[in-house]
């Protein structure tokens, strides 16, 4: 598998896939996509990178342990539901803020934060599984 071409292309391919996954994640609220699919694509990116350049390289690249990423995602998702505690509304009631960034109105919302949490959990866990299995392959 580790041909020179693959090893050269893989980082770019992975980066592209991660970028695409973020795009899929963010457009999910309106078009097909969302946290799951985005997360799965990003996890595949990690897997491909791992196969091409070795697991150690991936671990260096993401600095955090993938499981910590996953836990952070879960934490984020759960906390996004907690925001409504301060508005006197039930758990997970969505909150929307419209922020003007460079003249464009960008909607920020708790469902979005939640979806990013989903994304992180999927990336972290599935990525962790893939990396762990690849490590076993190599030893």
């Amino acid at each position: 598998m580790r041909t020179v071409i693959f090893r050269t292309i893989a980082p770019y391919l992975a980066a592209l896939m991660v970028l695409f996954s973020v795009f899929v994640l963010l457009r999910g609220h309106n078009e097909p996509g969302g946290g799951f699919i985005g997360g799965l694509i990003a996890a595949s990116a990690l897997a491909i990178y791992g196969i091409a350049c070795g697991v150690a390289a991936v671990r260096r690249a993401i600095t955090l342990h993938p499981m910590s990423l996953s836990a952070a995602g879960l934490l984020m998702a759960a906390l996004s539901g907690l925001v409504s505690l301060f508005t006197g509304q039930p758990f997970m009631t969505s909150q929307w803020w419209y922020v003007r960034l460079f003249g464009v109105e960008v909607p920020l919302s708790t469902p979005m934060i939640f979806d990013i949490g989903v994304y992180l959990v999927v990336v972290g866990s599935i990525g962790s599984i893939a990396l762990a299995l690849e490590e076993r392959e190599s030893d």
Binding site: A71, A72, L74, G81, L82, F91
Partner: peptide, 24 residues
């Protein structure tokens, strides 16, 4: 919502947050 009503979901939140923190 009365703050007391949050007790219904508090068990879940506490365990999820605790679990995530323990994992980190």
């Amino acid at each position: 919502v009365l703050p007391g009503d949050w007790l219904v979901v508090a068990p879940l939140l506490l365990t999820i947050l605790g679990g995530a923190l323990c994992l980190i």
